[in-house]
Simulated scan of single mutants.
Amino acid sequence: MPTSVLVAVLGGALLHASWNAAIKAEHDKLLAAVAVTLGAGLLGALALCWLPAPHPASWPYIAASSLLQVGYYTLLAATYRDADISHAYPLMRGTAPVLVALANSGSEALHPVQWGAVALVCAGGAVICIGGGLRSSRRTLVLALLTALVIAAYTLVDGLGVRRSGAPAAYTAWLFVLAGAGVAITSRPRLRGRLGPYLAAKPWLVLGGGFASAASYGSALWAMTLAPIAVVAALRETSIVFAAAIAAWVLRERVGPARIAGAVLIAGGAALLRLA
């Protein structure tokens, strides 16, 4: 894995943890999620003015991923209504690379060291979540696991689609434009006229959250054009470490020894991926 890819994926992981924390910090999680997706969609629409069109072969993947992204943001908002980010985030992000690796192992074989690195990253997520004491309801657990399933699904779809696009940046921009529109349309009945005033009052969330969301996933898609999908997906889960730090220092959540141990496992897995 080239150093540039490693830096891009780790930077994207930090941005991902940051916009998730921003949604969690808001009182209305659904409004916050819609604001972030609309901001990403707006930035994507502006970028399309200077980007070439993706290859036609990638459009089915863009459409499929956009639908999955709508479900992802909806599930994310519902999950954060029930649980702390330091509990729910590791469960969602730690389970997804296991599913990606299992589903993708037939087309991109990983050697034993890479499998060991993926296992370390996933084990770290499990230790943070389970070892730290997940006191959430069964509904929260189901929502988090469903979110992980959707993450794995769109990761695989986009890993294949971006390689067919010939234009990773344009692929990402169209994805966020369509996903932003889809989230706004499907959430409209539940927002009841509150979206406009909320967006006007939270421009920092729209632009900052939108940029963080688009840049974090855009960097991952670009990395998938240069490295195996499962390796990129696992390395991106170092966002769990950043999320734990933000939870402790910004959101003032309790982070005990189990979560610290989990973060060490994840960092070790990320280092092993770099050396493999």
Rank of each mutant, 00 (worst) to 15 (best):
Pro168Thr: 04
Asn20Gln: 04
Gly161His: 11
Asn104Gln: 13
Gly182Glu: 09
Val100Trp: 09
Ser107Ala: 14
Gly196Pro: 06
Pro2Gly: 09
Lys29Thr: 03
Ala223Ile: 00
Ala63Trp: 12
Ala227Asp: 08
Arg135Val: 06
Lys29Arg: 05
Ile240Val: 15
Ser86Thr: 13
Ala227Gly: 06
Leu31Pro: 01
Ala123Met: 12
Pro56Arg: 12
Val7Gly: 05
Thr37Pro: 01
Arg93Tyr: 05
Ser219Asp: 02
Arg190Phe: 02
Leu31Gly: 05
Phe176Val: 09
Gln69Glu: 10
Phe176Trp: 06
Ala78Leu: 15
Gly161Ile: 01
Leu145Tyr: 10
Arg164Val: 09
Ala103Cys: 11
Thr140Cys: 15
Leu68Gly: 10
Ile185Lys: 03
Leu99Met: 13
Val34Glu: 12
Ala248Ile: 00
Ile260Ser: 06
Thr95Arg: 08
Leu10Lys: 01
Ala148Met: 15
Val264Lys: 00
Thr238Tyr: 03
Leu191Gln: 02
Ala214Trp: 15
Asn104Met: 14
Ala270Lys: 04
Ile128Trp: 13
Ala126His: 01
Ala33Glu: 00
Ile229Glu: 03
Arg252Ser: 03
Val183Gln: 05
Gly182Pro: 09
Leu67Asp: 07
Ser239Cys: 03
Ala8Lys: 00
Thr79Ala: 15
Ala179Glu: 05
Gly209Met: 05
Gly256Lys: 14
Gly193His: 10
Arg135Met: 11
Leu235Lys: 06
Phe176Thr: 01
Ala77Asp: 01
Pro54Gly: 10
Val113Leu: 14
Thr95Tyr: 10
Tyr80Trp: 02
His55Ala: 15
Leu156Pro: 01
Leu6Glu: 05
Gly269Ser: 04
Ala101Ile: 11
Leu43Asp: 12
Leu31Lys: 00
Trp174Thr: 02
Arg190Asp: 06
His27Lys: 12
Gln69Ser: 09
Ser219Arg: 04
Leu10Ile: 10
Leu68Arg: 08
Val7Leu: 00
Gly166Asp: 02
Arg188Phe: 07
Asp82Leu: 14
Thr225Leu: 08
Gly182Val: 09
Arg259Ile: 12
Leu141Pro: 11
Ala53Asn: 05
Arg81Met: 04
Glu237Trp: 00
Leu31Glu: 02
Leu160Pro: 08
Tyr72Thr: 14
Pro97Cys: 13
